[in-house]
Measured scan of single mutants.
Amino acid sequence: MGSVRTNRYSIVSSEEDGMKLATMAVANGFGNGKSKVHTRQQCRSRFVKKDGHCNVQFINVGEKGQRYLADIFTTCVDIRWRWMLVIFCLAFVLSWLFFGCVFWLIALLHGDLDTDYKDDDDKSKVSKACVSEVNSFTAAFLFSIETQTTIGYGFRCVTDECPIAVFMVVFQSIVGCIIDAFIIGAVMAKMAKPKKRNETLVFSHNAVIAMRDGKLCLMWRVGNLRKSHLVEAHVRAQLLKSRITSEGEYIPLDQIDINVGFDSGIDRIFLVSPITIVHEIDEDSPLYDLSKQDIDNADFEIVVILEGMVEATAMTTQCRSSYLANEILWGHRYEPVLFEEKHYYKVDYSRFHKTYEVPNTPLCSARDLAEKKYILSNANSFCYENEVALTSKEEEEDSENGVPESTSTDSPPGIDLHNQASVPLEPRPLRRESEIGSRR
């Protein structure tokens, strides 16, 4: 089982795998120059863009038009607004034209077009017409509009002379109601789609790998820009990579689940303020055997998904993003964004995407760390350097704002901070800030 798991979770494809794949392509008759073999020097295209759209195009789909027309309502909801407006206008105009032609044909076959009612006051002739005051196609078209929109100006009306005319008036009224219901329903469904809710759900630009509770963890940050909550919010993550099976089958995008606390339930989050999602790199993680150097040379993509129900409509929305291997910062942490004021908490989104480097973060893999092949620094050293990194950030910001350097908390000259780390230190809580992250 261990060997199978290692093969499945191998992220960085070796040169031997690339040569094996190329040999397979030639042997199977696919070596026509169009096949692409992804190596370390040639990274694959992003499968999920940063804005959440999937970078996929469908080609050679059989009976595409028929399949889309069979699900016309979903098609109308998914198309762009400009095409929705075109369909909206065409549906009414074509129905008016169709029934206008029908009423014109009825008048033509009944002989109503030969009668001039402007110079004739004989009401008996008017009563013999199928539709009064309809003696041309324009008049028939206007009567069709008046019937379907129930305008009723009063000059044109159907008589009991022709039952077919009466039937067409009733039929057009029913068709008009159906068109109204369909168009209004599609427009309302399109307006109520929770897709735009994703514009106020954000992911951090970069993911980070750092120590948390004595273990290497992959972390990324999510935030909600609205005050309205995302009900039943939960997160998922998958690692996408290519691999070759033991039988020699090439899988271009193998999807591997990344555990973010599904078993323990901590994948469900209360997204009021930005939260750091934590994936513990343990023996079940696809990143277990990867060191910093392996991450730098790897070719994979981590897709992160945030799902929840919109509070206003109770409709489920899904926000997506992805991180390539070069977008994962090893040995970094996110800057705090949640600050405790006197009577409330304040979230500073200008710090949302910012990170700071944490010294002495192990550069080895989580496996080597678990097997004690890498000796961690003293816990006080880690905490102290973590505090120094934050303090230096604040000093830089104070210097930019014009604060005198004498007010900063610099260490005395001639003292090495790293050498001082081995000395037991008193706890130094942050002056006014605390970061709330997901705790395992």
Rank of each mutant, 00 (worst) to 15 (best):
R5D: 15
S10D: 15
S10L: 05
I11L: 05
V12Y: 07
V12W: 04
S13W: 05
S14E: 10
E15Q: 10
E16F: 04
E16H: 07
E16P: 06
M19I: 13
A22H: 12
M24G: 15
V26C: 14
V26H: 14
G33I: 07
S35K: 13
S35M: 09
S35L: 07
Q41C: 06
Q42W: 05
C43L: 08
C43K: 12
R46D: 01
G52D: 02
H53D: 09
H53F: 08
C54I: 07
N55Y: 02
F58M: 15
I59D: 15
G62Y: 07
E63P: 12
Y68T: 10
A70S: 12
F73P: 15
F73N: 14
T74P: 15
T75L: 04
C76L: 13
D78L: 12
R80K: 13
R80F: 07
R82W: 10
R82Y: 15
M84H: 11
M84S: 03
L85K: 02
V86I: 11
I87M: 14
F88G: 13
F88N: 07
C89R: 01
L90P: 01
L90E: 03
A91D: 03
F92Y: 04
F92T: 11
V93R: 00
V93M: 05
S95P: 03
F103E: 00
L105I: 06
I106N: 03
A107C: 12
A107N: 05
L108C: 07
L109N: 15
H110R: 01
L113R: 02
T115D: 03
T115P: 03
K125R: 14
S127D: 08
K128H: 13
C130W: 09
S132G: 06
E133W: 02
S136K: 02
S136W: 00
A140F: 03
A140D: 01
F141P: 00
F143M: 03
I145N: 01
E146S: 03
T149Y: 03
G152V: 02
G154I: 02
T159V: 02
C162Q: 01
C162I: 01
C162K: 02
C162D: 01
I164F: 14
V166Q: 05
V166G: 00
F167W: 03
M168F: 07
G176Q: 14
I179E: 05
D180W: 14
A181R: 08
F182M: 04
I183Y: 10
G185D: 04
A186Q: 08
M188N: 12
M188K: 02
A189G: 13
K190Q: 09
K193H: 08
P194K: 03
K196V: 14
K196Y: 07
N198S: 12
N198M: 13
E199S: 12
T200W: 08
S204N: 02
V208E: 00
I209M: 07
D213V: 03
L216H: 07
L218Q: 01
M219H: 04
M219I: 03
M219F: 07
L225E: 08
K227D: 08
H229T: 10
A233N: 05
R236Y: 08
A237H: 00
S242F: 14
S242H: 12
R243S: 06
T245E: 09
T245R: 13
E247M: 10
I251E: 15
I256H: 05
D257H: 06
D257S: 10
G261D: 05
F262G: 05
R268T: 11
F270K: 06
P274F: 05
I275E: 12
H279A: 00
S291I: 00
K292P: 14
D294T: 06
D299I: 04
E301Y: 01
V304D: 00
L306P: 02
G308S: 09
G308I: 06
M309E: 13
V310Q: 12
E311V: 08
E311N: 12
T313K: 07
M315A: 06
T317A: 12
T317P: 04
Q318W: 09
C319V: 12
S321N: 06
S322G: 04
S322N: 00
Y323S: 01
Y323H: 01
L324G: 04
E327G: 01
I328T: 03
W330C: 01
R333D: 15
E335Y: 03
E341D: 04
K342V: 07
K342N: 09
D348L: 01
R351A: 15
H353R: 01
E357D: 08
N360A: 11
N360V: 04
P362G: 01
L363P: 15
C364Q: 07
S365K: 01
D368I: 09
D368L: 11
L369G: 00
L369H: 05
A370K: 14
E371H: 04
E371N: 09
E371S: 04
K373T: 11
S377C: 09
N378Y: 04
N378T: 09
N378H: 12
A379I: 04
N380D: 10
E385N: 04
N386G: 11
A389D: 11
T391E: 14
E397Q: 08
E397K: 07
G402S: 13
V403H: 13
P404K: 10
E405F: 06
T407D: 14
S408D: 14
T409I: 04
D410E: 05
S411E: 11
S411W: 05
P412A: 14
P413H: 07
I415M: 13
D416Q: 10
D416C: 11
D416P: 07
L417Y: 09
Q420S: 10
Q420L: 09
Q420M: 11
P424M: 14
P424H: 05
L425Q: 14
R428Y: 13
P429K: 05
P429V: 13
P429F: 11
R431P: 13
R431A: 12
R432Y: 13
R432F: 13
I436F: 09
